[in-house]
């Protein structure tokens, strides 16, 4: 058990962060905190991918001219993928924050319970 923990420590960190992130998204009442949780969740996945690409003993995958011996490179592809994913993540966060701003302007709160009660009020009024 312990040796699994040691050899796969990166995965345990990833899972730990992921759970924290997901927990915040679900449990937090504050919309901004939800976004923070989402970011944490996303970032943990980024770490997962990047740690996949690391080959022990490998170096940065940059071709150096006139290398005599074959060099062990780490896998560059996950980095490329995650570069894209980071961009996506930034876009998600930006859109989320923009929505939070608009919600704040319309509902005068970013707490979920306040928003819910306001929604209930609207519903009651529309039924009249």
């Amino acid at each position: 058990m312990l040796d699994v923990l040691i050899t796969h420590w990166n995965y345990f960190i990833v899972v730990f962060l992921m759970m924290i992130g997901l927990f915040i998204v679900i449990s937090s009442m504050n919309l901004v905190k939800k976004l923070v949780g989402l970011n944490l969740f996303q970032t943990s996945v980024f770490l997962f991918y990047i740690s996949l690409g690391k080959i022990s003993g490998g170096t940065a995958p940059i071709i150096v001219a006139k290398a005599d011996a074959p060099i062990l490179y780490s896998n560059p592809l996950p980095h490329v993928l995650i570069l894209t994913a980071i961009v996506v993540g930034v876009a998600t966060t930006a859109l989320g924050l923009a929505l939070v701003l608009r919600i704040k302007a319309s509902f005068d709160s970013i707490e979920e319970d306040a928003i819910l009660s306001e929604k209930r009020n609207i519903r009651r009024r529309s039924l009249l």
């Binding site: 997901l22 998204v25 919309l31 939800k34 989402l38 969740f41 996303q42 996945v45 997962f48 991918y49 996949l52 994913a85 996506v88 998600t92 859109l95 989320g96 929505l99 939070v100 608009r102 919600i103 319309s106 509902f107 928003i115 929604k119 609207i122």
Partner: peptide, 27 residues
Amino acid sequence: DKRALVAAFNYLLIGAIGAIFYVIGAG
């Protein structure tokens, strides 16, 4: 209807979580 904002925000969260789930699987 301003409730659209809340619906959109929830849609964003659930959509993002779905996408990340997918990407974990792909990983």
